[in-house]
Design a protein around this nucleic acid. Structure first.
Lengths: 153, 153
DNA sequence: GCGCCCTCATTGCACCTGCAACGAGGACAG
DNA sequence: CTGTCCTCGTTGCAGGTGCAATGAGGGCGC
């Protein structure tokens, strides 16, 4: 009665493998961001979105970010508050719809991103080098997972 | 002076993509585990390791688990405490080296795993179906990332 | 205008986490 | 045996997190 359990190989379990890979790939960059700039990953994601004026304007609301990044609105809100305290972004009520909060990089924030983005780019290139000839197929598989799985059930 | 920033596409950034994919793939299963069994992901990982008697014995120490799973020892320790409180595992001092704590599934824990493991298996098969013909290449790329990156710098 | 229901963002709460510090125990040289 | 240094596991603390509740505001029918 001690062995009714089926074998199960955790190291072959895709969700687990993805979690470990995500953790490992984030770790190196995250440490740099934290030690050199005092920036966490949620904060970094917010900053990246503010660095690209996707729409006409250069400002974005909390829920724009929430929609584009896989991050809860409370997480976005708190990350934004920390960034505001640090002086990297500014919040302003939207003139048209006063429920919205428009976020925008300050000059200090722009300067920060001018340093951070090249680091991220270089790291991405390093990862692509490591993936070598498996890169395209790997990213294709990742695309399938990302496309297929809903994330607001 | 408003556009000195290089373009950067977050949705093409591999660490970000991995984080989102890991979150999405874990979410569905994690919710089931939580709602139906009251089990969190760290607790699940501990349980899985206790369900496979990798060595001769069916018991494992905290640091065995720490080494085999990408989890801090404090996380393992607290997950084990919760599992013990819930009655799924038992802790016992190792006879030979009294610093070690040997963890083992109780009967209740074995019964739990007999339910959980088939769910995980079925989910893995579903993911593999979604990946379809990209599966092999995708897993190969994941292997490269997992092999290359150190995780104890 | 008024009521109703919706959306946006924040916050309170309970919990989880990482990290450093700790105590207990083991290994080993002298 | 004693002292020193190591390992194992737990815990205190500060801070992050998810979730639900909240308050402010908007849209619309009447």
């Amino acid at each position: 009665m001690t062995r009714p359990l089926p074998d199960f190989d955790l190291s072959g379990f895709t969700p687990y493998r993805l979690a470990v890979a995500a953790e490992k790939t984030s770790e190196a960059l995250a440490r740099q961001y934290r030690e050199r700039f005092g920036i966490s990953i949620p904060e970094w994601r917010v900053l990246v979105h503010l660095a690209q004026p996707l729409d006409g304007r250069g400002t974005v609301s909390v829920r724009d970010i929430e929609a584009r990044v896989a991050m809860e609105k409370s997480k976005v809100s708190r990350a934004a508050s920390r960034l505001e305290t640090a002086g990297y972004i500014e919040k302003a009520a939207d003139a048209g719809d006063r429920r919205l909060v428009r976020l925008a990089l300050t000059d200090k924030g722009q300067a920060l991103m001018a340093e951070l983005l090249p680091l991220a780019r270089a790291y991405q290139e390093e990862l692509e080098r490591r993936l070598g000839d498996t890169l395209a197929d790997f990213e294709a598989g990742l695309d399938r997972l990302l496309d297929t799985l809903p994330h607001d059930p």
